[in-house]
């Protein structure tokens, strides 16, 4: 499912061109950021290039080589972050981690970086360095927005057959809410759980009490019946 990084060799349009999107499946271009270099793993930066962010994927295309580009789906991006600490990386960048789905099969011994062939399935980190660092917050926000548009598909029942819910993705059909995820921003960070800040939970607990009382009543009635018979 998590396919990791891909090489992009096709593009449309004149000049440097644009990535090939899939509008039939609802893919839309959200943002274009020129002047971005890409850093895959510990490799040297590649530039110049242009970053395309669609509702499904992040695509980086070389400005000079039409056959050169990379893409990663949002479902494969484990995390993304704004990195401004020069100790972490010398240029401010968007830092991402990529889920390749190949980790379990990997064996370290056969790994030869020297052959200079880029093994994309081993790239688990990607940095995107805009020439204008002021764009980082905008890019971060767009990444967040698009990541939320790409929840994991609902998987079939787990191997062990239990009905335990292991991840939020399994709750999707439960909510009935529309796809616009609502982020909870602190309005009043001092409130405690169950107080006015959390209607769902407070409501749940109230209902629980009601249920409990009903059960208690039922027991009493049973008792009464028994007493009546004796």
């Amino acid at each position: 499912m998590a396919s990791g990084l891909r090489i992009v060799t096709e593009r449309v349009g004149d000049g440097a061109g644009q990535p090939v999107l899939d509008p039939d499946n609802g893919e839309e271009l959200m943002h274009v950021q020129p002047g971005v270099s890409i850093v895959l793993g510990n490799r040297p930066p590649e530039s110049p290039g242009t970053l395309y962010i669609s509702t499904k994927q992040v695509v980086w295309l070389s400005d000079t080589d039409r056959a050169k580009g990379y893409a990663v789906d949002f479902v494969s991006l484990s995390l993304h972050a704004v990195s401004r600490d020069p100790d972490a990386y010398h240029s401010p960048c968007i830092y991402t981690q990529i889920e390749t789905g190949a980790e379990e099969l990997e064996s370290e011994d056969s790994d030869s970086e020297s052959d200079n062939i880029l093994n994309l399935s081993k790239i688990t980190e990607m940095r995107l360095v805009p020439s204008d660092p002021n764009q980082l917050d905008t890019l971060f926000a767009i990444f967040c927005e698009c990541a939320e548009l790409n929840p994991d598909p609902i998987e079939a029942e787990g191997e062990d057959g239990h009905n335990w819910v292991f991840s939020a993705d399994q709750l999707e059909d439960d909510g009935g809410e529309d796809d616009d995820s609502e982020w909870a921003i602190p309005e009043n960070s001092s409130h405690s759980i169950g107080s006015n800040g959390n209607h769902d939970l407070a409501h749940s607990v109230v209902q629980l009490h009601i249920n409990d009382q009903r059960f208690e009543d039922a027991e009493e009635m049973e008792q009464d019946d028994k007493n009546g018979h004796h």
Partner: peptide, 15 residues
């Protein structure tokens, strides 16, 4: 070490 500090971080729920 390279992830020493980042200001903002988005983590995908499924990971």
């Amino acid at each position: 070490p390279h992830m020493l500090s980042v200001r903002n971080c988005f983590i995908r729920g499924s990971v």
